[in-house]
Structures are given as C-alpha cells and as structure tokens.
C-alpha cells in the first residue's frame, strides 16, 4: 500500500512540476522539451491506471509526435527571424489571471470529486461492450469499441485528421529551401541510425497493428510509429518535401477513412444493417488501411508539405 502511494505521489508531483515548467519557463525551447517530458509522465500514469492502449498512444502521439511537430514549427520560426521567434515572453502575472486559474482548478477538482462519487452506478455501455466482445472475434475491448461499437466516432476522427492536414497544407507557404533536413543521412552515424531505426519502426508498427486485436495496440499507435519513421526520414534528408501531392499520396491519405466508412456502408448493399461488424480479416484490412493513412497524414503534417519524394543518394 505504501509502495503504490509513493509511486503515485512521485508521478503526481513530477507531473505538476513539469506542467509548471512548461508554463513558467523563460526559454520557449525548454518549455517544449518539458512538454515532451510531461507527455511521457502522462504515459506512465496511463500505465499505472491500467490502460496500456492509452499509454502507447500518449507516448507515441501525445509526447512524441506533438513534440516533433512543435519543434519543427519552432525551427521554422527561428529560420525566418531568430530574434522575433522567441519574443513575447510572459506578461507579468496580473492577479486576475491567478484568480481565474485557481478558480478553474477548483472547478475541475469539484467536478472530479463529484464524478468519483457517482462511480459504480453506470457503465452499462461498457458492460454491453465487454459482453458482446466474444461475438466480434477481437480480444482487445478498446479496439472493438473503436472500430465496431463506436465506429462512427472513429470515422469522424479520421476526417478530423484529414481536415487538419488539408487546413495546414492550405495555410503553409512553399519554402524556398530545398528540404527540411537538419542532419544529412550522409553523415556517418546518422545514416546508420536511419538505416536501422526506420525498418525497425516499420516492424514495430506492423507488430502493434497485429497485436492490437488481442493485446494493447491498434491502428492509431501503429500509425504513429510509422509516422515516427517518416519524421526520421524527413529529418535526415532521405525524403524531400514536395509542393504537389502525388496520386499515391492522395490515395493513402483517404484510404483508411474510405475503408472504415465503406465497411459500414457496404453491408447496406447486401441488405444488412448500417455499420454491422465485419469478420476478422476485414477488421485487419481496415486497421491496416487506417495505419497507412494515419502514418502518411502525420508525416506530411510534420514536413508541412503536400507530398514527400524519395531522394537517391
């Protein structure tokens, strides 16, 4: 009992300390790095609370990809105008801001404690999901919920991801520089890193995809690991941002959404119910398509371009 309490106290105090550093740090770059560390501690907390799917997703997407996106944007700011990029700083704390944040924290605390009181009553949706799990052929209830029981939510989620990509691409200006590489893959160690880690990322992504049926994992985590490989390729200059998206890129962006939505609409043609659960191979196919789409979308969001082109070295 003391052991778990000590772990919880440590996690909570580190979490709050990191959050404070993110907000009050003098240097913007350090704030971003502290945010990545915050994400990793959140992943540990998800693990502590017994939800490993969320731990994987937070580590890959919340900490890793969000950190990469922020550092990429920060780098673009610095390249345009190094001094103005970090200007602005912090206002001296007016008392109003402290009061508001205290009230906000209190609101969350009250809501949280009230919510804890109400626990133990409901959970019928979850119970229904767990009871029908054996009918779906999946062992991982979260994957079943995401793909089958609440598949419509997931379709909208993929559309939001696509929408963010379209919006970011529309807003971004074409760069004069040839690429986004910061450490050329021709450097001895970087080349070796990229040659070992990128295939490994592919293997890990495929493993997460396949394991997501019965163990923690799934399409989103796998897609995020793929995107990490894509980020590494972009940073080492192995792929170069392109202004126009090729046909393959455009197709892979919408592939996942099409498969997921299609799996819901196609049963209608055969006289079945909208969004009826498909068989296990169909689930693997849909998840694979989603993995590809998520990986491609997140990689393109990082490189802030419409497409990526491989470079022959």
């Amino acid at each position: 009992m003391i052991g778990t309490l000590a772990v919880d106290l440590l996690l909570v105090s580190i979490l709050i300390g990191l959050a404070w550093q993110v907000v009050r740090g003098r240097v913007l770059f350090r704030a971003i790095v502290f945010f990545v560390a915050f994400g990793l501690i959140m992943a540990m907390i998800w693990g502590r609370l017994g939800v490993p799917d969320l731990a994987l997703a937070e580590a890959a997407i919340g900490a890793g990809l969000t950190g990469a996106l922020m550092l990429g944007a920060f780098r673009r700011l610095v390249e345009i105008d190094a001094r103005q990029a970090v200007s602005g700083g912090l206002r001296p704390s007016p008392r109003l801001s402290l009061l508001l944040s205290l009230l906000a924290g209190l609101l969350v605390a009250v809501l949280g404690l009230a919510g804890l009181e109400l626990r133990g009553g409901s959970g019928e949706a979850g119970r229904a999901a767990l009871d029908s799990l054996h009918l779906t052929g999946l062992g991982n209830p979260v994957s079943a919920v995401l793909l089958l029981f609440r598949g419509l939510d997931t379709v909208f989620e993929m559309l939001v991801l696509l929408g963010a990509f379209l919006g970011a691409r529309h807003v971004a200006e074409r760069d004069r520089r040839s690429g986004a590489a910061i450490a050329s893959h021709r450097l001895p160690m970087v080349g070796a890193l990229q040659m070992t880690v990128v295939p490994l990322a592919l293997v890990v992504a495929l493993h997460l995809l396949r394991a997501g049926a019965n163990d923690p994992g799934g399409a989103f985590q796998a897609g995020a690991v793929l995107a990490a490989g894509g980020v590494l390729l972009t940073l080492t200059g192995r792929v170069v941002p392109q202004a126009q998206a090729g046909l393959l890129t455009r197709f892979s962006l919408i592939f996942g959404t099409l498969m997921l939505a299609g799996s819901g609409i196609v049963p209608l043609i055969y006289g079945g119910v909208l969004m009826a659960p498909p068989g296990k191979t169909a689930i693997y196919a849909i998840e694979a398509a989603m993995m590809v789409s998520i990986g491609v979308t997140l990689s393109l969001l990082f490189s802030a371009s419409a497409g990526l082109r491989a470079v022959r070295s």
Binding site: L11, V12, L15, I16, A19, W20, V22, V23, R24, L28, I45, V86, S87, G88, G89, L90, R91, S93, P94, L96, S97, L98, L100, S101, L102, A104, G105, L106, V108, A109, G112, L113, L116
Partner: peptide
C-alpha cells in the same frame, strides 16, 4: 483528481499570461 485539477489550473494560467 487533484493532479488533473492542478494541471488544468496551470494550463489556464499559462494560456492567460503567455504572449507567444
């Protein structure tokens, strides 16, 4: 719950006092 409340409050504070 206390951790979530504290982080939320810190976030609100950061949102209000930051210029960048």
């Amino acid at each position: 719950v206390f951790a979530a409340a504290a982080v939320f409050g810190i976030g609100v504070h950061g949102l209000l006092i930051a210029r960048h």
